[in-house]
Computed example of a mutant assay.
Amino acid sequence: MILDAARLSLLNLFAPETRSVFWKTLGLTILVLVGLWFALRELFAFYAWPWFAAFFPDLPDWTGWLTLVAAIVASIGLALALALLIAPITALIAGLFLDDVAEVVEKRDYPDDPPGKAMPIGEAIASSIKFLGVVIAGNIVALFLLFIPGINLIAFFLVNGYLLGREFFEFAAMRFRTPADARAFRSKHSSTVFMAGLLIACFLAIPIVNLLTPLFAAGLMVHLHKAISRRDPVFKT
C-alpha cells in the first residue's frame, strides 16, 4: 500500500497536470534556500569571525592560511545547517501548496470520488506555522544526537519520519475530515503513517532530489489516505 502510493506520487511529480505546482514549489524552495544561505553566511561574517579575531588579537603571519581554513570550515557548517533546515522549509512550503497538489491528484487518479475541501487560508497558515515550529524543534534534537555515534543517522530518519509522516498525513486527511477526526484517524493507523514518513525522510536525504520533497510527500499522503480510507470506511472518532 505504501509503495504503491509512493509509485503513484512519483508519477504525479512529472504529470502535465502537476507541472504548474511543480515549478512553483521547486522555485520557491530554491529561493528560500538561497536566501537562507546568504543570511547564514552574513550572520557568520558579522558575529563569528570578529569574535575569533578579538579572542586571538596577536595572530602570526600565517593568518591568511587560518582564514582559508576558517572559511572552509564555515562553508561546511553552513552546508550542514542548510541540510538540517530543508525539513522545516519543506513543512512551510507544503502548507502553501498541499491543497494544489491534492486537488491535482484527486482529479487525475480519483475522478469518481467526491473532491476534498481545502482548509481556510487562516487555518492553513496557522497549521503551517505550528508544523514549522515542531519540525525545527525536532531537528534541533536530531542535531544534538548527531554527535552520539551509532544513533546519529537513525535519529535523523526517526525524527523526520515521525514528524513529516504525521503532519503530511493530517494535511491530506483534513481535506475530508475535521482536524480532530484527522488526528484520530492518523493515530489509529500510526504504524502505517510512520512507515510512509520514513519513506519521505529517505527522499529528503537525497541531495537535489529533496527539493521536490513537498510535492512527493503531499502526493504520497493523498494516495495513502485514500487507500486507508477504503480499508477503514466506517472510522469514527
Rank of each mutant, 00 (worst) to 15 (best):
53 A>G: 08
73 V>K: 00
140 I>T: 04
54 A>N: 09
8 L>A: 12
96 L>G: 08
99 D>C: 04
218 A>S: 15
137 A>Q: 11
130 K>A: 08
116 G>D: 05
25 T>F: 07
77 G>R: 06
37 W>P: 04
49 W>E: 14
205 A>N: 07
28 L>K: 14
135 V>I: 08
136 I>L: 12
103 E>N: 02
223 H>F: 07
123 E>W: 04
60 P>F: 00
51 W>P: 01
213 T>I: 05
27 G>D: 13
94 A>M: 05
218 A>Y: 03
231 R>P: 02
56 F>T: 05
112 D>C: 03
14 F>G: 09
72 I>M: 11
118 A>V: 08
145 L>K: 06
65 W>R: 05
48 A>Q: 03
138 G>C: 10
149 P>L: 06
83 A>Y: 08
53 A>N: 12
221 M>Y: 07
85 L>Y: 07
54 A>I: 07
113 D>C: 10
43 L>C: 04
23 W>F: 13
216 F>S: 02
113 D>S: 14
97 F>H: 04
137 A>T: 14
77 G>Y: 09
119 M>L: 15
68 L>V: 06
14 F>D: 05
54 A>F: 01
16 P>R: 10
197 G>T: 10
151 I>W: 06
66 L>F: 01
214 P>Y: 06
7 R>W: 01
208 I>R: 08
110 Y>D: 12
3 L>K: 11
117 K>H: 13
173 A>K: 01
132 L>A: 01
213 T>D: 02
55 F>D: 12
106 E>M: 04
16 P>N: 10
18 T>C: 13
141 V>D: 05
170 E>F: 07
53 A>W: 01
17 E>S: 12
155 A>T: 03
171 F>H: 04
93 I>R: 07
123 E>A: 14
217 A>K: 04
206 I>W: 06
55 F>V: 09
217 A>Y: 05
23 W>Q: 01
38 F>S: 11
40 L>Y: 11
33 L>Y: 13
38 F>I: 10
114 P>Y: 09
55 F>T: 10
174 M>I: 03
48 A>I: 14
65 W>Y: 13
207 P>I: 13
102 A>G: 06
182 A>K: 00
53 A>M: 13
69 V>N: 03
202 C>K: 05
185 F>N: 04
126 A>Y: 05
26 L>V: 14
71 A>T: 12
127 S>C: 05
228 I>S: 00
10 L>V: 14
110 Y>T: 03
62 W>N: 08
170 E>P: 02
173 A>H: 00
51 W>H: 06
31 L>K: 10
45 A>H: 12
45 A>M: 11
233 P>M: 07
34 V>C: 15
98 L>C: 10
189 H>P: 04
150 G>F: 01
131 F>P: 00
201 A>C: 00
231 R>D: 14
181 D>R: 11
176 F>W: 08
93 I>W: 02
237 T>A: 10
57 P>I: 05
228 I>K: 01
228 I>M: 11
110 Y>P: 07
115 P>D: 12
185 F>V: 02
142 A>G: 08
228 I>F: 03
107 K>A: 15
33 L>D: 02
21 V>P: 03
10 L>C: 14
10 L>I: 12
110 Y>V: 09
199 L>I: 13
107 K>N: 13
145 L>V: 01
42 E>D: 12
105 V>H: 03
120 P>T: 13
191 S>D: 15
183 R>P: 02
